[in-house]
Design a protein around this nucleic acid. Sequence first.
DNA 1: AAAATCGATAGATTTTAACTATCGTCTGTA
DNA 2: TACAGACGATAGTTAAAATCTATCGATTTT
Lengths: 303, 303
Amino acid sequence: MNLRDLEYIVAVAKTQHFGKASQLCNVSQPTLSAQVKKLEDYLGVKIFERDNKNVMLTEYGRSIVAKAQEIVDAAERLKDTARNMQAPEQGQLKLGAFPTLAPFIFPLAVPVLRQSFPKMQIFLTEEKTENLIAQLKDGRLDTALLALPAEEDVFEYEILFEEPFYLALPPSHPLTQMEAVPLQMLAEEDLLLLEDGHCLSGQTMEVCSWVGAQKFNTFRATSIETLRQMVAAGLGVTLVPELAVPRQEQNDIIYRPLINTPPPSRSIGLFWRKTSPFKTLYRDIARQIGTAAGNRKTQKTLS
Amino acid sequence: MNLRDLEYIVAVAKTQHFGKASQLCNVSQPTLSAQVKKLEDYLGVKIFERDNKNVMLTEYGRSIVAKAQEIVDAAERLKDTARNMQAPEQGQLKLGAFPTLAPFIFPLAVPVLRQSFPKMQIFLTEEKTENLIAQLKDGRLDTALLALPAEEDVFEYEILFEEPFYLALPPSHPLTQMEAVPLQMLAEEDLLLLEDGHCLSGQTMEVCSWVGAQKFNTFRATSIETLRQMVAAGLGVTLVPELAVPRQEQNDIIYRPLINTPPPSRSIGLFWRKTSPFKTLYRDIARQIGTAAGNRKTQKTLS
DNA sequence: AAAATCGATAGATTTTAACTATCGTCTGTA
DNA sequence: TACAGACGATAGTTAAAATCTATCGATTTT
């Protein structure tokens, strides 16, 4: 049994067709037929039912092909890793971020990375934290931007920046009169949250528990943009991370800093596997993204 | 790149010696040397540093070998699965159970399984629930005995039995005067718990929260046997699952059933991957273990 | 009935993994 | 200092395998 054979059965399972599968694998159809047959004999299991018109997975075949797929994928990742090792800064970088950070940090990160490592191929993923962690563990991602605390025992990380939360208010709201809002004043507000699984909703609830705010609205939004629309519609108020605050003032939503000790904020870090051989590169990348985010902040303060 | 090559580098990494590695792989030393070199050329990465006396992994090699190991393991599991498919009841069964169940259920389960499937090779694992779930997911285990609720969405399961909790008391304790103890009476007792990570401690705390018992002792034991010793030493009382209650009365610890609606108990189920092709066999096994546990109960009631 | 489709089979060829024998280098010992 | 032993690399050969082209046989479509 070798990797090639596993690629063959994966291809046949995918195409349901020996001829097309053989093209996918760049071999002749008889080669593929022979190898599949040999593998079936070796394993002692019929993987495919060949009717003269259709190719179908047997029940056992389905589970064998699933395992084969995993093995082939893992082998592919091994090759990618090896290729990267020859010149890490010219290889691939698979970077993930969670949904309430991704749309704001990617536009900042990508330009600086492209400038520093022009040959690096950057793949971006937006996923909930839970999925990011799973993908980082099994190698589908090289690095991920996560809010602390995350699983610091499995991963290594470098903190990029501390991101304060801002209060988003409808223009009619009395709190817009203040330049900055003490956190305690949220105790009686209708707080809008994201649906479960978003780390922002957990962070918001944590911050609010400091001051005993509990009037959480039962409706749960699916994205920051939805939250904003709801705030604009006067359904309540919400916390927004700094990077999501527009640089220019808007008419429909007013943003105000929050005052508290400690200040309400989240820490963003770049995470990678402890075992990764590219730590040096990742640390470098972390600093660059951190700087880029810091610059944005400075610009805002100046404007 | 093929699986054999990956086995070679894993063997070299393990033995730190080309000669010994070649014996492990049943090939000649030159063959192994040549293939390793070829793989290194193909990947473009030096995996080993060959000093004339020592073989050492390079930094990159370490991470490549780790990935290779995973791939080789996965391939081995694929072969095992295939072998099992030819005659599931003559193949391997890798069964796990958590620590507060394993020592009591395995002695009941193994004899009936050996009788029903004489050719089956049974591998037993005792692990905390969290590890069982991880191992079940990635194929290191075929089945696991878990307390419900577990991750019912990833797995399929069959409930084996409902296992009531008994109260374990030192002989001097006033509650020993009662034939059966109403759960509410635990509210003022010193309750001894297992350390975190054991599902029994979670179950105990849940049961106790029904009646508002909160006097949990701060010390956390590492096994049921330790708990028993502590109870015997008069440090407090604890809950033990029925299978852990000795069939004959003991002098140092008295066991009493607990009365409540619903009765304090845990459900034990046999779990397997939804995608497993051996569901029929596993269901059969589940019923057999369930029956075996039921018989023990009957014997006890009769004695 | 003829043509087209599709997987299996046959036989030749190329590739490559494997073997044996031997080399070159370093190490420890006499 | 020289010699034996250990170890991985190299050379040359052989055996195994994967692959190719050509073709078959069964089924479906036109």
